[in-house]
Design a binder for these strands. Structure first.
Lengths: 134, 134
DNA sequence: ATCTGTTATATGACTAACACATATATTATA
DNA sequence: TATAATATATGTGTTAGTCATATAACAGAT
């Protein structure tokens, strides 16, 4: 299973454990943060997501569905923008409720990072410490 | 949605965004690491998981199914232990392949932590920096 | 003896996030 | 007129996670 690797020197490691290890729903806080910075439409959000995060492509299906769900939950509101060229854009802006939700996400994310650190500490204590060996 | 919170001083925040923000399949590397430290049966792993990580209860259903899957994938192997009191225990030990998989997981987890940091940096740059305000 | 609690493993059913494919319409450009 | 880029959207299947429940061995109490 997976490619072999012991190097421990994070080289490639691509396509191993597909889907695993990622943060559940991580697109959600990103969308809210990007919308907090400024209102935007789906396609633009997709591109902005693709830049900072090297998330593999930022699936449009998931993105548009998430925005729809956000609107249904009152976290964002939208309006059509027909100005400019190309097809009409549905422009989203974040609501106060969306802001609160974003802040709540941040608390969760900090907690998640602590959990990761706890795991990595335990891992290193076992594999990189003088005794315990192996 | 959710409880209100602006305090920014991570107080309770319980049961908000249920399930979201957690690392997908995070039980997997934990199980492999615990088994790398020493062979164990499911129930024991459940208790050891519940200690370090304050994961809410470490669902037995998921745990046993994951161990089964691991065995099917050759990451662990098991044998029955009928010695001692109580019902028989299925004792798992990690295989070489399981070890490799664990190391691969660690690479993924480090990458995930970097993604979290990138998000938090972006968040703080917007909400905690002097300008940008709001 | 029976009842309750602990240890121990396991299945069933449902949800949500995600992955991948595809449909659609508009506009620009080759 | 064909192709590509922009833009939004649906359909379908997979998997981790959640919650409930079933089963069984054994210990101690009443």
């Amino acid at each position: 299973m997976c490619n072999s690797h012991h190097g421990e020197q994070g080289e490639s490691e691509e396509r191993c454990c597909p889907g695993r290890g990622r943060v559940r729903g991580f697109m959600q806080p990103w969308l809210l943060l990007l919308l907090a910075q400024k209102p935007a439409h789906g396609y633009e959000l997709m591109e902005r997501l693709g830049q900072d995060d090297e998330t593999p492509g930022a699936d449009p299906g998931l993105l548009y569905r998430t925005l729809r769900q956000f609107e249904e939950d009152g976290l964002v509101r939208s309006s059509w923008d027909t100005k400019g060229s190309g097809p009409a854009r549905r422009v989203y802006e974040i609501t106060d409720e969306g802001m609160e939700y974003l802040h709540a996400w941040v608390v969760n994310i900090r907690r998640t990072r602590e959990r990761l650190d706890r795991f990595l500490a335990e891992y290193q204590a076992y594999f990189q410490s003088p005794e315990e060996g192996r």
